[in-house]
Amino acid sequence: MPPPVFRFAPSPNGHLHLGHAYSALLNFDRAQETGGRLLLRIEDIDATRCRPEFEAAIYEDLAWLGIKWETPVRRQSEHLACYRAALDKLSALGLVYPAFESRAEIARLVATREADGPWPRDPDGAPLYPGNAKSLPYDERSRLIESGLPYALRLDMAAACRRVSGLSWNELGEGPAGERGLVTARPEAWGDVILARKETPTSYHLSVVVDDALQRVTEIVRGQDLFYASSVHRLLQTLLDLPEPAYRHHALILGVDGRKLSKSDRATGLRELRVAGRTPAGIRTSVGLG
């Protein structure tokens, strides 16, 4: 039997903080305990925010923590054709459509809908897509695309869910409400999620399932903030005939205000803590792994 495969997949859009350190160390420790492999993936599809200096800092910070990973490192920006192929497969199934509303237009549509009562929101609290682009005739879609109008490619969630049934995943960790074991996936709660945009041929949901499959990741160790997104990932894995990994969601490291840490929180930044004299062992203690 091949060894288990783990991955840590940060985005180079800022410096790592204690929350990143916790997730990276958990992945590293799991690989060590199981005789598995640890991969590092750079999720740099957002060209407007990702910068080379942040990527270099990721390598430096992880090495300082004592984490070792296999090379070469996979950088998403170098594999856009893989995501395009997956998107084409979903399109061939009739599950993808272009939506042309701007974020401001979507906000106005939601406000209009809410005049008749609360509009549904996804597990992250964002309103579900309220537009009617799915019903646009093919010729009208083509005309709008050819006009140069920006658009997002969305998954027809209702049609996608009709193609699969009984989706679940094996939860080795713990969800926000204490979920463990076999968890029922409910992708419909997310509505018609974005799979790509005109200027970027992929999204987080699409690229993460493609990458995990291509890299043969067997156990995904990540924060509880992504627990509910696993429903979308299981749906895409099934539609694309991709293998099903196990999931191990872990608690988040929170700031003094009780909120999830952000890369703008310099008080918990690994570089700032290192300059202040903290050691790798001290970081482990700070995140409960000492």
Rank of each mutant, 00 (worst) to 15 (best):
F28H: 11
H205E: 11
A85K: 06
R30Q: 09
Q224K: 07
G181K: 03
W169R: 06
Y138G: 10
L80V: 09
I42N: 00
G117T: 14
G125F: 15
M157D: 04
G258F: 08
A213T: 10
G94S: 03
S207W: 03
L214W: 09
H15I: 05
M1R: 12
W119I: 15
Q32K: 12
T279G: 04
A213I: 08
L26N: 00
G223S: 08
L149T: 10
V275C: 05
R154L: 10
E60L: 11
E146K: 12
L25I: 10
R37L: 15
L153C: 01
V208I: 14
C82R: 13
N170H: 14
W169M: 13
R121K: 15
R186C: 07
P243W: 05
D257S: 12
L149N: 06
R180T: 15
N132Y: 11
T200P: 12
R51A: 07
L153F: 04
E55W: 13
R154A: 13
S262G: 05
T279Y: 04
G148R: 14
A31R: 07
D29S: 03
P123V: 15
R271L: 04
H249F: 01
A133Y: 13
E70S: 15
D29A: 04
I67M: 12
T218W: 11
T238F: 02
A57C: 11
A189K: 12
H79Y: 04
P245L: 07
M157V: 09
D211R: 06
A86D: 08
Y22A: 04
V217K: 13
S262E: 03
A56K: 14
A31M: 12
L109F: 05
P150D: 15
A81Q: 13
R180L: 10
A152M: 14
F6H: 01
G178I: 11
